[in-house]
């Protein structure tokens, strides 16, 4: 069985975009390129869950075929992993569903199978989730309001790396911050298998009010498939797993 690489962008933000193209549109584009866009909206401890325009968080993830979650700072670590893993399962399940449709006809999805057979299919999905290679580009909003959340973000990313590196499949992580000084995004950490070496990785805060989420996602898309990734690790075609059966 051939195994592909799952590609994800993980956007961590605390507010609305206010500059550049519509982030949902860019996320749709990314999804078409085989890159899932997940979004985590971080709330201040005293903030209520619907106080700001966090609707955008959900919209971007929907368009990017990913998972979204709005959390308080304290629960960030656990959320980062849950979201990453859920998105992997979701993507793989999508691929498996595609396969099922091809084999069993256009209306056959996992839910249409009787529970007994569903179990066997899920085992395959789980196996794939454990063994697939994974690339996560973490895109962190470093605008002024995120300032006091960054240490927690950093901690949760190290934790993510601990979790993902317990898998059998290989991992690559990269961290980018936006808005960048001159470009849409600035590189914080180049593609690497572990995140345990990031100490004080986040740069000095650049700007006040602008949050160009759309352009940032777009720029992040281009970071997949750059030469710094091992060649064997790369795949151009959109659905990353071509064969899901044995």
């Amino acid at each position: 069985m051939k195994k592909g690489t799952l590609k994800q962008i993980l956007l961590i933000t605390d507010g609305c975009s206010n500059k550049g193209e519509d982030p949902s549109a860019v996320a749709t584009l990314a999804a078409q390129q085989g890159i899932t866009v997940n979004v985590i909206g971080v709330l201040e401890d005293n903030q209520s869950e619907d106080s700001m325009g966090l609707q955008e968080v959900e919209d971007i993830a929907m368009s990017g075929e990913g998972v979204s979650q709005i959390v308080y700072k304290k629960a960030l670590s656990q959320t980062v992993q849950t979201v990453t893993k859920q998105a992997m399962t979701q993507t793989l399940q999508g691929v498996v569903n595609q396969e099922l449709k091809q084999i069993l006809g256009p209306n056959q999805t996992l839910e249409e199978l009787p529970p007994e057979q569903r179990g066997e299919v899920m085992e395959v999905v789980e196996d794939l989730g454990e063994t697939s290679d994974l690339e996560v580009l973490v895109l962190v909003d470093t605008s002024a309001s995120m300032h006091n959340k960054l240490p927690t973000v950093q901690e949760s990313l190290i934790d993510l790396s601990v979790s993902m590196n317990a898998r059998i499949g290989r991992n690559r992580f990269a961290i980018y911050a936006f808005p960048g000084k001159k470009k849409a995004i600035d590189k914080v950490l180049d593609w690497s298998p572990k995140l345990d070496s990031i100490s004080s990785i986040f740069p000095r805060l650049t700007s006040g009010g602008i949050t160009p989420t759309g352009p940032a996602i777009k720029e992040a898309m281009y970071q997949f498939g750059k030469s710094s990734l091992k060649r064997s690790f790369m795949r151009e075609d959109a659905p990353d797993i071509e064969e899901a059966g044995y």
């Binding site: 934790d159 979790s163 993902m164 317990a166």
Partner: peptide, 24 residues
């Protein structure tokens, strides 16, 4: 065994306490 722990709770997780991996 050998895979990554599927679900855990911080307080009981050795990874959270920096005392080991999350490998099953």
């Amino acid at each position: 065994i050998g895979r990554s722990i599927k679900e855990y709770t911080d307080f009981y997780d050795r990874g959270y306490w920096n005392m080991g991996s999350r490998r099953a």
